[in-house]
Design a protein around this nucleic acid. Structure first.
Lengths: 154, 154
DNA sequence: TATCATATAATAATTGTTATCAAGAATAAC
DNA sequence: GTTATTCTTGATAACAATTATTATATGATA
């Protein structure tokens, strides 16, 4: 974890920004809640536990900055708030999400899966793909397990 | 076009709603601007040209209603506003989008393309897919065409 | 030291959207 | 036809998420 902070610090410095205590606290919260898909408000409340003097605007600014530097990805599941995910180190592409319409859980798919599709799109639509967003809405294994007979026994 | 309005009228009636003049005006604007990805505000301004007495709230209500009936799809490209697309008649699935990061243009992909990917996701993650959202961000043919030969520019 | 740029907390302002509510049609009951 | 009843509407207030403002603090530099 410390090494990841170090690397993020370098990324900031490369872009002429500093890793201030507030920014570090924000990054730490993100690191401690990977895959949690926190909203700005969520992050704010969590950071506040450790650094109560931080302001909401600072969290917004930090998240914006981190998005710009591609340290985090800003996602939007259509529920009115933006959510922030740490980008996996070395991941060229954005990961996908499974949003459960029953319980609201958000699971991640790290696999790319879109290789073929992207090739088709680039060729057929003459479109140079830089990034993608893929979200499936449906019923997760937990919820379908509850009512389904052949539920998976974990 | 009239026949599509007729069908939408039936859909409304089936759900115990009426095609009021305001709703019809809104639907007509959507029909006349297919593939335009209008925001609620856009729709409001366009409807106002024909029916100046309409209120913004009515447009929001109508768009919400049409979304519920799956006449339109509500999409979000992360720019802070929701956009509304008429769903292609008979389309079981939501179409995909190409968002150009240069000029902001939004093109549509009607083809599904995700058949294989969905099969994998359903099997491997035990997830029952009901809908999907797929958006590619990149450079469209228009923008890459402009500088295509001597690529390097600012 | 003074000076300069950056970062900050607090708060005001803005934006997209939703809720409220009284008034206006449409429909049904008498 | 008149009266209920139910929808629907327009205007506007309320709301929540985000962004801008401002005055202050911090830290580096000369």
């Amino acid at each position: 974890m410390e090494s990841r902070i170090e690397r993020i610090k370098k990324q900031l410095h490369n872009a002429n920004y500093k890793l201030t205590p507030q920014r570090e606290a924000t990054v730490r919260v993100l690191l401690e809640h990977e895959e949690a898909h926190l909203s700005a408000e969520d992050v704010y409340l969590l950071v506040k536990e450790k650094a109560p003097e931080i302001g909401l605007a600072t969290v917004y600014r930090t998240l914006e900055l981190l998005t710009e530097l591609k340290v985090v990805d800003k996602i939007n599941f259509g529920d009115g708030v933006s959510r922030f995910d740490l980008r996996q180190e070395g991941a060229a592409h954005f990961h996908h999400h499974l949003v459960c319409i029953e319980c609201g859980a958000v699971d991640e798919i790290q696999e790319d899966l879109l290789g073929d599709v992207e090739q088709i799109v680039e060729d057929r639509w003459n479109f140079q793909i830089k990034d993608h967003r893929l979200t499936f809405h449906g019923i997760c294994w937990r919820c379908s397990g509850e009512t389904s007979d052949d539920a998976e026994r974990t």
